[in-house]
């Protein structure tokens, strides 16, 4: 059997069940190769290390999750509670600015909004050259 196939068989044997014929093939290969036996040992050790890597219980974990959930709910509630007031304040500011602009420039045109309504042609040309 090809060395690559034996290696694949060995890798599979560590994590998956094998047929009787495959088990026999692997057993025969292991018998004659010390290197393969060492590799099998290392792979089995690695698998066991992974399987044992369960973290210790954290007694405060559930509490931390609940606190974060409550904090999130409070933030949402605050936004919902403040939204009408903030929206009303924004509308009032926009209205005040519009009125101010209208009384100052006498119109709400785009030129008035950007402050160009009183600009002469010479001044506009000078601005483009600048």
């Amino acid at each position: 059997m090809e060395p690559n196939n034996i290696k694949n068989l060995l890798l599979r044997s560590i994590t998956e069940p094998m047929s009787a014929a495959e088990q026999e093939q692997l057993r025969a290969a292991l018998e004659v190769s010390e290197e393969l036996r060492r590799e099998q040992e290392q792979l089995t050790y690695t698998r066991e290390l992974v399987q044992q890597a369960i973290p210790a219980a954290d007694p405060g974990f559930s509490q931390k999750v609940l606190e974060r959930l409550q904090k999130g709910r409070k933030e949402v509630a605050l936004v919902v509670q403040l939204f009408p007031r903030v929206a009303a304040a924004c509308v009032a500011v926009i209205l005040a600015l519009g009125l101010f602009l209208y009384f100052e420039a006498g119109s709400l045109s785009t030129d008035a909004l950007v402050g160009l309504q009183d600009l002469s042609i010479e001044e506009a040309v000078a601005l483009t050259e600048y």
Partner: peptide, 17 residues
Amino acid sequence: VASRLARGLDKLKEVIV
């Protein structure tokens, strides 16, 4: 899944060894 597990375990073994 099977092929990634085999290759991954082989790579992990190399690092640990």
